[in-house]
Design a protein around this nucleic acid. Structure first.
Length: 141
DNA sequence: GCCAACGTTGGC
DNA sequence: GCCAACGTTGGC
């Protein structure tokens, strides 16, 4: 099982929306780098949900409830025949007992090469196992 | 195919 | 509200 981090602007769609709805289609990712990460997600993978804007913190876990598939609203394929604008279904996992702030992540040298720190505009990225372990501890999970 | 201009995102 | 980073677009 792989781990990924997905960003969202909570005023657009928040982790609590996902908890309430039990399932959602994670759409709207357009950045090529983020789409590469999104296409690598497989059903059952663990997702860290990060809130941008005023919060700037990882607020909870989710689970990939599907493999990536083509965004019905934005058809098209890559050179490799994969959906260009991929989306994935998510279901909620455990909420963080304590949210992990961006400031805390930035303060820790182990995260220096992490996408969230290195490339602030990246909205989807893989999370290496070692870092996922640290994040889960900080979340109190 | 290069690059300047412009738009967008997200942290501060 | 500003600015840095980065993607996209269009002229050449």
């Amino acid at each position: 099982m792989a781990m990924f981090l997905l960003k969202t602007e909570p005023s657009e769609y928040s982790y609590s929306d996902l908890v309430r709805e039990k399932r959602c289609v994670w759409s709207g990712v357009s950045n090529p780098g983020a789409l590469i990460a999104l296409r690598a997600i497989r059903k059952g993978d663990e997702i860290f949900v990060y809130h941008t804007g005023n919060e700037r913190a990882i607020v909870g876990l989710a689970k990939a409830a599907s493999n990536p598939y083509e965004d019905p609203g934005r058809p098209g394929t890559t050179d490799e025949g994969k959906p260009k604008f991929a989306v994935v279904d998510l279901s909620p996992g455990k909420p963080a007992k304590s949210p992990v702030t961006l400031a805390k992540i930035k303060d820790d040298t182990r995260f220096a090469t992490f996408g969230l720190v290195k490339q602030s505009r990246l909205s989807a990225m893989p999370v290496p196992e070692a870092l996922a372990k640290v994040l889960r501890e900080w979340m109190g999970l």
